[in-house]
């Protein structure tokens, strides 16, 4: 039986992991490769690296990080952030990443999804969607540029369009829930999950193991992603998985 996946996300800037990391036992808590190994040992099913480098040099450094990670890690990982062209995808995937994730660039030029999917196969292309509930529209709307700009896309419609263009997976972040630690947005996740036929990763709002259970079991989504609760050691991947197992969720 296919298991539900737990995916820690690491923000990487100029080749270093940023965003309050509390891993005293690590030689270098800012080293992406060491953190990747740490999560692998805890039972993470996949990893996501989000490159938040502002400069060209920073993004080049990310290619080195990808190469080192691929050389030392035996679980799949995705790289997102700053991927705007097919050439960007080629650089990251050839360095050893398994998937690339696109967000704003795909909304600006949706053909990018098709180009990547035709070239590498749908399984390599993740479309990340940042969605926020709009009272005015009565549904979740898609935002770009890290949540700064509202688009005219409804989240469900954009997810369907992305899949039509060749996305192999949707990484869905609830902007309402993000950072709140009060649980994933189950309604948003369910709406998108039911609208597409590719796997959907829920993101935004994880505060405890029960939140993972709710989105994986009640909504039956395929995977759940979190950053800060793992980084700040409020819980661990191993603890979340042991809770899920107890509740009858199929995990590795």
């Amino acid at each position: 039986m296919l298991t539900k996946r737990i995916i820690p996300c690491l923000d990487v800037k100029e080749g270093r992991v940023v965003k309050g990391i509390q891993f005293v036992e690590l030689r270098d808590a800012g080293d992406p490769v060491e953190l990747a190994k740490f999560y692998d040992e805890q039972g993470a099913d996949e990893l996501v690296f989000l490159d938040i480098s502002a400069s060209h040099e920073g993004r080049e450094t990310m290619v080195d990080v990808v190469r080192q990670t691929a050389a030392s890690l035996a679980i799949p990982f995705t790289v997102g952030g700053g991927i705007r062209t097919l050439d960007d995808m080629k650089r990251i995937l050839r360095a050893g990443a398994d998937k690339v994730s696109v967000n704003t660039s795909a909304l600006e030029r949706p053909e990018l999804i098709k180009e990547g999917s035709d070239y590498f196969g749908a399984q390599c292309i993740v479309v990340a969607i940042d969605a926020r509930y709009s009272e005015e529209d009565g549904t979740w709307m898609v935002y770009t540029h890290g949540g700064r700009n509202k688009t005219s896309w409804k989240a469900v419609d954009w997810a369907q369009e992305a899949v039509r263009l060749g996305a192999g997976e949707i990484l869905l972040t609830s902007m309402n829930q993000d950072g709140e630690k009060s649980g994933f947005d189950v309604n948003l996740t369910k709406a998108v999950r039911d609208a597409v036929t590719v796997p959907v990763i829920a993101s935004g709002g994880a505060g405890n193991a029960e939140h993972f259970r709710a989105v994986l079991q009640d909504v039956d989504t395929d995977a759940a992603l979190a950053a800060s609760i793992f980084h700040y050691k409020e819980t661990s991947v191993a603890e979340v998985k042991s809770y899920l197992r107890e509740k009858g969720v199929c995990v590795r």
Binding site: L2, T3, A122, Q123, E169, T197, V198
Partner: peptide
């Protein structure tokens, strides 16, 4: 099947 690709860990 409900999802394609078959993506993830299976026993």
């Amino acid at each position: 099947v409900s999802r394609i690709p078959h993506m993830g860990w299976n026993d």
